[in-house]
Design a protein around this nucleic acid. Sequence first.
DNA 1: CATGAATGAGGGTTCATTCAT
DNA 2: AATGAATGAACCCTCATTCAT
Lengths: 213, 213, 213, 213
Amino acid sequence: MPKETFTNLPDHKRNRILRIAIREFAEKPYDVASISNIVREAGIAKGSFYQYFEDKQDLYRYLIELGTEERLNVIKALPAQDLSGDLFVYIRWLFQSSVYFELKEPGLAQVAYRAFVDEVPFPEMAEELRRRGPTQFFKQLLTQGVHHGDISPWADVDLAAFIMEATYYQFGRYFVQRLNLTADADLEQTFASAEAQELLNNLIRILQKGIGD
Amino acid sequence: MPKETFTNLPDHKRNRILRIAIREFAEKPYDVASISNIVREAGIAKGSFYQYFEDKQDLYRYLIELGTEERLNVIKALPAQDLSGDLFVYIRWLFQSSVYFELKEPGLAQVAYRAFVDEVPFPEMAEELRRRGPTQFFKQLLTQGVHHGDISPWADVDLAAFIMEATYYQFGRYFVQRLNLTADADLEQTFASAEAQELLNNLIRILQKGIGD
Amino acid sequence: MPKETFTNLPDHKRNRILRIAIREFAEKPYDVASISNIVREAGIAKGSFYQYFEDKQDLYRYLIELGTEERLNVIKALPAQDLSGDLFVYIRWLFQSSVYFELKEPGLAQVAYRAFVDEVPFPEMAEELRRRGPTQFFKQLLTQGVHHGDISPWADVDLAAFIMEATYYQFGRYFVQRLNLTADADLEQTFASAEAQELLNNLIRILQKGIGD
Amino acid sequence: MPKETFTNLPDHKRNRILRIAIREFAEKPYDVASISNIVREAGIAKGSFYQYFEDKQDLYRYLIELGTEERLNVIKALPAQDLSGDLFVYIRWLFQSSVYFELKEPGLAQVAYRAFVDEVPFPEMAEELRRRGPTQFFKQLLTQGVHHGDISPWADVDLAAFIMEATYYQFGRYFVQRLNLTADADLEQTFASAEAQELLNNLIRILQKGIGD
DNA sequence: CATGAATGAGGGTTCATTCAT
DNA sequence: AATGAATGAACCCTCATTCAT
């Protein structure tokens, strides 16, 4: 966790540093991301960085933390969705929240994505990420769905969770590219658009009913 | 591309170098993979490496090339599957070939996967990889499928191609992990097993009919 | 020398800082001892340190000074020993006082010892330490001893002083280790013990009569 | 141990680097000695240093090794001295060899001396040095001496070994300073001089018979 | 054609010291 | 008087690449 020194920084300076750090860790794998780059771009002294953070790992862990926090904030900001109804309505809501996050914090989203695929070079963290990751969640969700009758009893729950997760991870970026969005687009309006709604509907329909005729 | 000096190398030496290089680039992101490591492990002189390859990029490009070639070889080695019949039979065959490749050349598969997620640090290549990637192919396939009546007319072809691609990229590794396979397993036997066949069937069934009840 | 700000500090705070500083300079060579460590452990601000002391050297010089002062205090606190009697009784008393100091102020003793062996990185001070060191004192002592008939007329006074000094510097630590003492042992009792008295006696006997048979 | 790269270096270059490295580690404690200094003074690239040595420790260990080797060489070059005769003749020979070494390799002697007093920052090595150090040797020597009748039966062997060791460590430097020698003095001639012989004789006489009258 | 020493920029990190508050 | 953020030089070490042999 960053030291107080960092927390006490004036907002614009702290945010500038964070923005640059996020970009660095979003663009490059952990080992390649460079503190030297960050301080150069942020215009601060190398020594200052180490007043703010314990070390490179400290910054990185903080960014991951920030990512999960922000993801939660985004979810909380959305109209809540309960689990008791149709499971696919809930899944639709999940994917939507993921896209919301991707649009609001593309940098943090990319850092988080990297944390999964790059295999972070400190094992205990990799482990924790795996535990907190969506895989287990999807499996539970689908198992429940089978009991409730929303999910086909013949479906291989483990396999289905895998497909959903693979899709889930990439969907945000697909959404952005497909609808030609920019980060500063008005989020509410974007999601209210017929195009966006239809895209989400189609995604869910494919998951639910497949693409076969 | 490697220089003639490399092509002229005795097979066992050339292969040894390749094997070690593949391992290195499979284990680490491009910038972290180390020529020093490779030559040390391969027991060749640093200078020799630069007689064989222009530079680090050259070797890397060659590995990527090798990967796509081997992927094709694997596909060609499989009993051909024509496109005229049921599209899902063909798709099943596609996924199966992907898994075959993953099992036969896990190193190259991992290098290719990294090229996709790590975003190689030389943009023109990233671009090229994206162009040659399976997305376009899947789109064409599905568009044809709509005409043939295999694919639902209401399906969003672009979106469906995205889902298939997202799944396709990861499925090899999922398959290996799910069935607890090792690289040296007998491929034919592995695929002949009821478990493997069932897993592939389930994957296709989900794509075709969804997981909804 | 410390600034007034330091002298004006409440005793417990000043002493706490000193205690921690002594430990730091006792454990590490001058260049490795870290002001950052000291202020962190003492719980004072970096800036405060520089209100108390001119710089790192200033603190260090003060500790050396403190060491010599304390050494003198220890000697003064011991029952005085006059020089008119047997010289070896006086020398015994000298060595005893050295051990007393080592036990009472092991930190300061170690700092002083380091100043001797590490060769402090500012030459003028090294010079001064050498000047004020015990060598000259031992030489005078022995010269007097020759006149009084306590010291053999054939003895090389300069050489003998060297041997005594070499022994003197290390004897404190040897004593502590040999008798398995801890810093908080009761000093009076420790020295009253037959073992301690015998060790001192033996030391003097060796100096006086040698180890030959 | 240095890599082959270093062993293969032309003599003058290898020696230049060694000379500078020895000076650096002779002048400063391990942590303060600086590889950057060494390469700057030696006029080689930082990277080159790491072609020659694994790391800082590697160089340091090598210097220690070199020191013990050279010490042995010096001893072997002296007319051998057997242990069967008068013990003090043997001890005289020991001290003389020590001085020889100090004169021939003052830098290495100082590095070795530091290794003992500075408490090298890698514990296993400190341990080994302690084991191989002269303390144990002196104790054995004196114990034997007691049996042979050369050493007084009442002498505290442990204490006597301590005194001898303390003297032994510093005697080389004392000798140099006392006789006003320079490193490039003719060694043979220096030792043949009446002054030097007398100084050694006096040292032994003091150890054997003490300084008392 | 093979070799492997040489290079120097760049990496993360620590430190004594300054100075505005 | 006390604070603690800012600084930048220095530390050890790694790397891709070159080039003389």
